[in-house]
Structures are given as C-alpha cells and as structure tokens.
C-alpha cells in the first residue's frame, strides 16, 4: 500500500514538474515571440520614418532654397541697396549711407508727385474696401444662392479678369475718350472732353470706376465657392425663422466666410503700395500720364522700367521707406479685423 502511495506521490510530483516545465517553456516562447516582434516592429517603424523624412526633404528642399535666394536674399539685398550707390568705374555698389534718402527728400520737398501717389493709392484702397468688396460679396451671395441666371453672370463678371490688361485698357481708353464724349454729344448736345484726357478732372474718377469694373473675376469665384461650403442646416434654420436674404447675408454668410474675407482684406493692404490703377497699360512711360493721377505702384514700377544700374539704389530706398509705412499698417488692419470681426457662436 505504502509503495503504491509512494508511486502516486512520485507521479504527482512528476506531473507537477512536467507542467511547470511546459509552462516555463510556453512562457519563454511567448516572451521570445513578443520580444522578437517588437524588435522587428521598431526596426520597420524606424525605417519608415527614415524614408518619410527622406521623401519630405526631397519635396521641400528646392522650394525652400528658392525662397531663401529669391525672397530672403532679394529683400535683404534690397535693404542694403538702399544705403549704397553705383560706382560706374568699378561697376559695383559702394556704401553711401544717407545719400539716396537725401535725394528722395530733395524730390519730395520740390514736387508734389509723391503726395499725389499716396493720396491716390489710399483712395484706391478705400474704393476697393467700400465699393468693390461689398459688391463682390453681394454678387457672390447671388451666385451662391442660385439667383436667376447666376451662372451666366458669374461668367460675365469673370471675363474682364482673363482679357489681357493691355487689350482691356486699349478698348477702355478709346471707349472713354471717343465713345463716351460722342454719346454725350448725341444725347445732350454738349461737348465734353474725353474722360481720360490728360489733365481732365474726370481722369481719377474714371480710373477708379474702371478699377472697380475689372475687379470682380477671381474674387467672386473664391467667395462664392467658399460660401457654398456653409452648413446647409444653418441657412435652413434662418429661413424657417423668416430671415430675409439681406439678413441671411449679413448674419450668416459674412460671419461664416470671415476667415477667408479677413485674409483677403489684409492681403489687399499690401496692394496699396503695388496697385497701378492700370496707369502703365493705359499710358505707358511716366511722361505720358498726368502726375496728379499717379499711384505708388505706378511710380515705382515705371521708374524701375526706365532705370539703369545707377538708379536701382535710390529706387530701393523708396521701397524701404514705403515698407516702413506699410508693415505697421498691415498689422494694424490685421489686429482691427481680429478684434472687431464677428465672434464664433
């Protein structure tokens, strides 16, 4: 009996030992597998990260290099150029500190040209902000809400922006200078000078009207497609509450597209200093345009066209002065737009 008991006991220990061994082995295998897989995973993730980084670098390197040379270097160089002068003997630019600024001061103190430029450029921005922009937004609302013949008018408003500026201005110049005086004479029997005749007081107003006339194109496309992304349920809710189109425009459309809108207004500030009011296409070289209608953009561009290496430093100095005025202006506008813009709620 005792022997049998002993055998059973042994058997029990034997089984226990086997079980333990098996368990340890399974655990080992599992642990081994797990560790191996983990090692494999980290290796493949690392490899993928490396590949991604390589791909990313190959995409961004050239564009960034371009920006470094043609944005950063060009603008830094422009800054330095403002304090240099051209040396016709060595064909290099030497330092001349304030000489260019003295020349500018001399010009400003004798002539009103720059004053006119500032006035007209500011006027042009005001017209853009308070006439072109609201009209563009209203027309976009009309197109987005699918008003009658909206698609047709979208095309019509877009046309002036694809017609080359030279062609539009050639037609407009003769239209304003020949057609309109002839029409006025035919209807009222009164002789008037062409609207764009040099020195005529109607010139500036005509130019501003023309700039509004051709301004819609791309803006309307941009605004109306942004508007088409507005949540339909919001509009439906407003309609159920009996909102008129004007109320919907003012209380839903404008606040909803405000991010796009404010970006465009801010970008537009830079336009004050580059907008030419089509003067160069209409009149070409600066001698041909009556200086009371000049803008800053026209002044700088036409001077650059007719400048040689010797004139570049002075032009760069003009640029620097304008930039000093423009940068705080842009950030003020940006601040005001974010402060007084519609709040999300």
């Amino acid at each position: 009996m005792k022997r049998i008991k002993n055998i059973e006991k042994c058997d029990f220990f034997y089984k226990l030992k086997r079980k333990l061994k098996d368990g340890i082995y399974t655990l080992e295998v599992a642990l081994h597998n797990k560790l191996k897989r983990k090692r494999k995973n980290t290796a493949s993730i690392e490899r993928e990260n490396k590949l991604n980084l390589l791909f990313y670098i190959s995409l961004v390197t050239l564009p960034l290099l371009q920006v470094v040379v043609f944005y950063f270097y060009v603008n830094f160089n422009s800054f330095f150029l403002a304090f240099q002068e051209y040396n016709p003997v060595t064909l290099r630019y030497d330092w001349a500190l304030w000489k260019n600024f003295d020349n500018i001061w001399f010009f400003v103190s004798r002539e009103k040209t720059l004053l006119y430029c500032f006035r007209n450029s500011a006027l042009s921005y005001v017209v853009t902000l308070f006439i072109s922009l609201p009209l563009a937004l209203l027309f976009s609302q009309y197109i987005y809400k699918k008003g009658p013949a909206g698609g047709f008018f979208k095309t019509v408003l877009f046309i002036p922006s694809i017609i080359p500026e030279m062609i539009m201005t050639t037609m407009f110049l003769y239209f304003a200078d020949s057609f309109i005086p002839a029409t006025v004479k035919g209807i009222f029997g009164k002789e008037i000078a062409g609207l764009l005749t040099q020195g005529n007081t109607t010139m500036l107003i005509t130019l501003l009207c023309y700039s509004v006339f051709i301004s819609f194109g791309g803006n309307i496309i941009m605004y109306s497609s942004t508007m088409s992304g507005i949540d339909k349920s919001l509009v439906e809710a407003a309609q159920l509450d009996g909102a008129t189109q004007m109320q919907e425009f003012w209380h839903i459309t404008i606040p909803m597209i405000y991010p796009t809108l404010s970006t465009f207004i801010t970008v537009g500030v830079a336009g004050i200093f580059t907008h030419q009011l089509s003067l160069f296409s209409l009149f070409g070289a600066d001698g041909n345009a009556y200086n009371e209608v000049w803008t800053i953009g026209y002044f700088l561009y036409s001077r650059t066209v007719y400048a040689g290496s010797a004139n570049y430093p002075e032009l760069a100095a003009y640029g620097l002065l304008m930039t000093i005025i423009a940068v705080p202006l842009v950030f003020t506008v940006r601040y005001l737009l974010s402060k007084f813009g519609p709040k999300t709620d």
């Binding site: 040379v69 043609f70 270097y73 060009v74 603008n75 160089n77 422009s78 150029l81 630019y93 500030v269 830079a270 004050i272 200093f273 580059t274 800053i296 700088l300 561009y301 650059t304 400048a307 290496s309 004139n311 570049y312 430093p313 032009l315 760069a316 003009y318 640029g319 620097l320 304008m322 930039t323 423009a326 940068v327 202006l329 842009v330």
Partner: peptide, 12 residues
C-alpha cells in the same frame, strides 16, 4: 508688404 524689391531682384 515688402515694397520695391524689383531693382534688387534685377541685381540678384
């Protein structure tokens, strides 16, 4: 608005 960088652009 970095105005008037055209001359510098030509130089570069």
């Amino acid at each position: 608005p970095l105005v008037g960088s055209l001359p510098s652009q030509i130089v570069v």
